[in-house]
Design a binder for these strands. Structure first.
Length: 488
RNA sequence: GGUGGGUUCGUAUAACGGCUAGUACUCAGGAUUUUCAUUCCUGCAAUAGGAGUUCGAUUCUCCUACCCACUACCA
């Protein structure tokens, strides 16, 4: 959800200002490759109607070849592997970065020691003088290590005591002293891949990115990114850091577990992880994509008016980063359902009927399409999801096999049954029956509910007139007789 | 621990430094209805605490508290 919302805000901002929304896959961590994840992202965006202007080819795969539509291809960073090393080494040449030869074990040890002394180890101006890197070793040794080993990295040489002044569209002016920052790894010889920081800056520059709109978790990296743009001498884009999506109860970021625990999806589409665990999706749970997009849009942003229901086009027109909030937004599952309910009502009965037909078939019911349409017309105000339709209206298609005991005891009493039978048998339509009951001055509620119980098996549901119109007088009488046989 | 960010009803949020702090969801009550649902009405409920600036602070400044993120050869 968080990822989709970030994509959505990027998309809305781009469309609002006549820009392009570009899809780029940042897969620079070879250890974290997840099969199917890329396809999942693309399918999710498509379902939501967040179509990238750039990044996909005609078969909806990430574009690898440059074309008129995809001038910055490839869009998968693992495919751009070759371009990053030169940029990293340029920084080394210019004195903004250096080679580091410390092994994972050595760093691990340094961290453990610092922790033992009650401190935190960071690779920085304070510590790099005592570590194995191109700043401390002889040039000749550096040259031979670069040649002989394949586990070195290029680190950013974080300046000391520089106040980095930053401006964020959402958060305003922020200042950080560079002395509190560490020498981040920019490029790894082991897999010849950059880390996020380098790849992001290089690609954003190469792809002519004007605005970086991303999650708040990136805010602490912003000074590094500023310094990188500066080191390259590149014009930097504008930044906007979005508030986090928080779990509905308690504190912290929204996680997969929250959804399972509280019964709502946290993924746009059903997702089966490589380890076999399955997470439900909004699509499979019956949410409409436009409802999902709408509810996501309202999580952290507001239009400044009281309008809550927005089409994608309306969102594009109304969106502005200035109206994005600063504080984390707790996700509210009830409100999510409310959105879907509103969207269900806006759908035409024809459209909903088309979705209802397969549900009916799954229950062994086949009905004429215009009949289904009429049913939908009758029940759409009562439902949140199309999947609710069957529970609401099943008795229009089959007679009840059992009766809710409590309701039967209350309404299917002998004295009511007498009146109900007479009303049913002496009239030919629901309207006439109602008139009949009125003229006899019988208690309407008791008689009607007695009939309803026979027709539906419980004391709640659609109006008797509507039910009878659908099942017909004969079926109504048959159901009533069956109820009498079974209950009296 | 360090750095940064954040804080208005339970939740999402509104309010050029100036109203009785508004709206939606949830919840409760009522009206309508043959039941249920819908619809409509009503209600519950908030500026974290403390200083300061000001004629006036939800809004600006500072302090405190609490929450979150980051602190990896992950993004």
């Amino acid at each position: 959800m968080g990822g989709v919302r970030t994509a959505l805000y990027n998309y809305l901002f781009a469309k609002k200002h006549g820009g392009d929304f570009i899809l780029r896959i940042e897969d620079t961590d070879s250890h974290r490759f997840v099969p199917g994840a890329e396809e999942y992202i693309i399918e999710s965006l498509r379902w939501c109607g967040i179509m990238p202007d750039e990044g996909l080819d005609d078969s909806m795969h990430l574009a690898s070849e440059k074309s008129e539509r995809n001038p910055h291809a490839p869009y998968r960073q693992s495919e751009r592997k070759g371009i990053y090393r030169a940029y990293a080494e340029q920084l080394v040449r210019d004195g903004y970065a250096y080679y580091a030869f410390d092994t994972a074990e050595e760093l691990e040890k340094a961290r453990a020691e610092a922790e033992g002394a009650g401190q935190t180890f960071i690779y920085s101006a304070l510590t790099r003088g005592g570590l194995r890197n191109s700043l401390t070793l002889e040039a000749s040794e550096v040259a031979s290590l670069l040649e002989s080993r394949t586990d070195w990295t290029i680190r950013f040489k974080m300046p000391t005591d520089r106040v980095v002044e930053m401006d964020d569209i959402i958060r305003g002016h922020i200042e950080v002293n560079s002395s509190t920052l560490d020498d981040k790894v920019l490029w790894k010889r082991a897999d010849e891949l950059p880390t996020y920081h380098l790849a992001n800056i290089v690609d954003d520059h190469l792809m002519e990115i004007s605005h970086v709109i991303r999650g708040e978790e990136w805010l602490p990296s912003l000074p590094l990114h500023y310094l990188l743009y500066e080191a390259f001498g590149w014009e930097r884009p504008q930044f906007a850091h979005l508030p986090l999506l928080l779990k509905p109860v308690g504190n912290g970021k929204l996680s997969k577990r929250d959804g399972d625990k509280m019964g709502f999806p946290v993924f746009p589409l059903r997702w089966e992880a490589p380890d076999g665990t399955v997470s439900r999706g909004y699509r499979e749970d019956g949410y409409f994509p436009d409802a999902f997009v709408n509810l996501l849009a309202m999580l952290g942003w507001n239009p400044g008016t009281e309008q809550e229901i927005f089409s994608m086009q309306e969102l594009v027109e109304a969106f502005s980063l200035e109206k994005v909030g600063k504080s984390g937004a707790k996700f509210n599952p009830d409100k999510a359902k409310w959105f879907n309910k509103e969207y269900l009502r806006m759908r035409s009965s024809t459209e909903l009927a088309r979705e209802f037909v397969p549900v009916l078939e799954a229950h062994g019911v086949s009905a004429a399409f215009d009949t289904v349409e009429q049913v939908v017309e009758l029940i759409k105000e009562r439902a949140t999801f199309v999947a609710d339709f069957w529970d609401i209206a099943w008795y229009l298609f089959k007679s009840p096999e059992e009766y809710v005991e409590k309701d039967a005891a209350k309404f299917f009493k002998a004295e009511n049954v007498q009146m109900a039978r007479e009303a049913l048998e002496s009239t030919s339509s629901a309207e006439a029956m109602e008139e009949y009951i009125r003229s006899k001055e019988w208690p309407m509620g008791k008689v009607m509910n007695c009939i309803r119980l026979a027709l539906t098996g419980s004391s709640s549901g659609l109006g008797i007139a509507d039910i009878m119109r659908f099942i017909g007088r004969e079926e109504a009488l048959a159901r009533f007789r069956r109820a009498e046989e079974r209950l009296l």
